[in-house]
């Protein structure tokens, strides 16, 4: 198990480079393309990628980097320091520590996409393109919504954890209940629930300034689906896809279609336009 110390926190990293030559000796995707997979909040971890799309990305010739966010999975769990900026710093430091200098492709699920939007705004030169799954940038309305969600989780897991876990086990299965128990510890033992809603937010001009190509995937029955037209109008280069019959859990429920859309998006955006000139010497 690889732990990468950013200087601030130890991050659990899994990297797959399962590139296999095809019959003709060429790889299916753009060589040297690195895809960084960012998971969501609380009950999520890199396992949501490891057991769904990650092996297929590696088999397609991509360099696949997955890591657990601070406080999640097998990464370090500091008591404080959970604003969105801290998660963005972690990504930046991780790319430095791994020696990844070429622009990367970001894939962000839920809050992982929120991290990706912020990173693309802050470090445009490091992001070739991104795919966000059931996600939104850190807007003021996002902050209100996430504050309500985190407070509800913190309350339910503090006041009557056993009843909450029983309900989750009955409706979503034992595994989800175990994940919820870990999430309960995270919101009780750290400042995450207060820090994330207090993060610096983006206004419309900030979102317009995210220049990299963005593919946004939505569950057709999710509350976020209504944001698709707005994202297409604000972001300079944005396409959206809808998953009929799905709500928020698009990644684990429809991994085949997510995989195909990501591989297509990565293949179409090998590196930022401005970077190509640098490559010609």
């Amino acid at each position: 198990m690889a732990i990468v110390d950013t200087g601030d926190v130890g991050l659990h990293v899994q990297r797959l480079t399962g590139a296999r030559p095809t019959a003709h000796g060429v790889r299916a995707a753009a060589p040297d393309a690195t895809v960084v997979l960012l998971h969501g909040l609380l009950t999520d971890s890199l396992a949501s990628y490891y057991f769904t799309v990650a092996p297929a990305f590696a088999a397609a010739g991509l360099d696949v980097v997955m890591y657990d966010h601070r406080g999640h999975g097998r990464s370090g769990r500091p008591e404080r320091g959970y604003t969105l900026g801290a998660f963005v710093d972690d990504l930046d430091a991780l790319l430095d520590r791994l020696g990844i200098r070429n622009p990367v492709h970001l894939v962000g699920n839920s809050y992982g996409g929120t991290v990706a939007f912020d990173y693309a705004l802050r470090r445009p030169e490091r992001v070739a393109a991104m795919v966000v799954i059931e996600s939104e940038p850190a807007t003021p309305s996002w902050a209100v919504k996430i504050a309500g969600l985190l407070e509800r989780v913190r309350h339910e897991m503090s006041v009557n954890e056993d009843a909450a876990l029983d309900w989750i086990a009955a409706h979503h299965g034992g595994h989800t209940a175990r994940l919820a128990k870990s999430a309960g510890r995270l919101v009780r033992d750290t400042t995450l629930a207060a820090d994330i809603p207090a993060s610096a937010v983006l206004d419309d001009d900030d979102v317009r300034a995210i220049r990299c190509p963005v593919l946004a995937l939505y569950g057709a029955d999710s509350d976020l689906a209504a944001q698709a037209p707005r994202m297409r109008s604000l972001l300079p280069h944005c396409a959206t896809e809808s998953f009929p019959g799905h709500r928020h859990s698009v990644l684990v429920e429809a991994p085949g279609r997510v995989r195909d859309l990501v591989l297509d998006w990565v293949g179409r955006h090998p590196r930022p336009a401005g970077d190509r000139a640098v490559q010609v010497r």
């Binding site: 949501s48 999975g73 595994h175």
Partner: peptide, 8 residues
């Protein structure tokens, strides 16, 4: 009672 991350 392993979680998915334990299987990783």
């Amino acid at each position: 009672e392993l979680e998915s991350i334990d299987l990783v």
